[in-house]
Every structure is written in structure tokens, then in C-alpha cells.
Design a protein around this nucleic acid. Structure first.
Lengths: 138, 138
DNA sequence: ACTAGATTGTTTGAATATCAAAGTAAAGTT
DNA sequence: AACTTTACTTTGATATTCAAACAATCTAGT
């Protein structure tokens, strides 16, 4: 097996396991997977407009419009209207949304600690550096 | 930021980007995200019973029962009944299911090649080794 | 051998999430 | 000014999901 193929396997396996972990964590919360993903995207990458957010989440803007409307009604998101471009709408977390994101993010951090507890400090640094390079290529 | 926190960020970012890529690739195919995920799990990890597959996919067995039924009708999956434990049902890809999985997997392999083209052979090996360790901790 | 509890998978009913396509309004282009 | 593109929303149809109740089978302890 080529180095690409074996690395491909490992990358997919990580993605699968992360998705499965996320699903089980979210199922025990008060929010759906789609909702948590929306809060996570805004919490991790900051406020953004509908198009960027839909692209980030891998859904259409039509789907996102519905989802954002629900989260606004729940008090977790707020919309900001741009004066530069009046078609564009920036979406951001409210304080309440921020709190939920931070709670969820703490779970992620615990998981990361657990997953990498047997790595040396240097290995953790190397893994972060290499995967960071990979991320930039998307 | 601690080494855990920065690594956490990178891991999440990779997961997000992979999910987004997967969604856009799948949207252009004839199958849904849930269906492709089911085929992928069986293709990558081999035949398994309903409970294991549901766990692998991060969904309940109730949801999976419905999904497997559809895929069986489409001729992509087949069920095998165990004699050891007559409650258990092993699910596997048919040849047609295998073909779809292989087509999708080829897209993954292209992505991996693209993502890691600027890494040295040694860096690819290191990344695979470290992420492999992480995967084992789940 | 009996039984109580655990395990595996299915069914059901209700809530959510999703897309594609059509529509609206604003911005950019020629 | 007319045309095209862009950002977002709405709509209608499907697909996905879960929790809870259920049925069949297995396991362990007595």
C-alpha cells in the first residue's frame, strides 16, 4: 500500500471516530447535531455571513436560513445587517450561544487530552504542525 | 494557549473541513450522505452486525434498520443471519455496493494526495503514525 | 431446568433536517 | 439603462433522526 493510501485510511478513520463521538455527545445534550455544528462554526471561526457559514457547514443556504431562524428564536444567535452590502447578513453567537459553545468546546478539549495523553510534548507539537499544513490545503 | 488547546483546534478544523468536503462531494452523487456513510463504514471496516454498524456511524439501531432496508432494496447491501446468535444480523456490501464504495474511496484518495502533496515522504509517515496512535485511543 | 435480566434488532410516531427550485432584492457589469 | 451575478429566503417534497415500546434470543445465577 502506498504512503498515500495508508495515510488516507488513517485520516478517514479519525474523521469517522470524531463524527461518531460528536454524535453521541450531542445526543445527550438539549440541542441537535445540526444546531451544535452551527454554534461550533461561529464559535471557532467567528461571525460570518450566511453564505460562508453554509459553506463551512456543508449545507445549502436554504437549509441554513431555517436553522438560523430557530437559533435566533432560542436566543443563541443574532443577525447583523451590513450597510456596505445590504444583501449580506452576518450571523454571530449571543452570550447564551457563546456559553453553549464553550461548554461543548470543553468536551472537545477533554477528548483531545485523552486521545493524546500517550504522546510526548514534541509529538503533540509535530502532529499539530503537520495537520495544520494539511488544513491549509483544503 | 496550551499544547492541548492548539492541537484541539487543529483536530477540530480538520474534522470540519473533511465533513464539509464530504457533504459537497456527496451532494453531487446519486446517494445521500447517510447512505454513503453506511457504505463507507462497511467498505472500510468490513461486514459487521447492526449494533456495531450503528455505533460506528453514530446513529441508533432504529435509524439504521430503516437505512439498511433501503440499501438492501437498492441492491447495495445484503444481510447474513448468524447461527451462533440468532438475534444478530451481519450486514455486508454487495458487489454493486462495493463498486460505489470504491468510487467514493478513490475521491478520498485524491483528496489525501492533494492535501499532503507538500509534505515530505517522512512527514506523511510521521503524520500517519501519530494520528494512528490517536485513533487507537478512541 | 428455570427464571430474571441483558442483548440484538424492529417498529412506530413525531420532530427535524435536507435539498432543489423558484423568488426577491441588492450589487456589479457592460 | 439593461443584463447578469450574488446573497438570502421561501416553498414543497423527501429523508433522517430519535426515543420508546416491542419481540426474539441469549446468559447467568440459582
Amino acid at each position: 500500500m502506498s504512503s498515500y493510501a495508508s495515510l488516507n485510511k488513517v485520516l478517514i478513520e479519525f474523521y469517522d471516530k470524531m463524527a461518531s463521538w460528536e454524535a453521541s455527545v450531542v445526543r445527550e445534550s438539549d440541542y441537535s447535531l445540526a444546531q451544535i455544528h452551527t454554534l461550533e462554526a461561529l464559535g471557532n471561526y467567528g461571525p460570518m455571513n450566511m453564505k460562508s457559514l453554509a459553506n463551512q457547514l456543508g449545507i445549502t443556504t436554504g437549509t441554513l436560513t431555517v436553522q438560523v431562524e430557530k437559533l435566533v428564536k432560542l436566543g443563541l444567535l443574532q443577525r447583523f445587517y451590513s450597510e456596505d452590502d445590504r444583501r449580506s447578513i452576518t450571523v454571530a453567537l449571543t452570550d447564551a450561544g457563546q456559553a453553549i459553545h464553550q461548554h461543548h468546546n470543553a468536551l472537545h478539549l477533554s477528548l483531545t487530552e485523552e486521545l493524546t495523553k500517550d504522546l510526548s510534548e514534541e509529538e503533540r507539537h509535530t502532529l499539530g504542525r503537520l495537520l495544520g499544513k494539511v488544513n491549509q490545503e483544503f
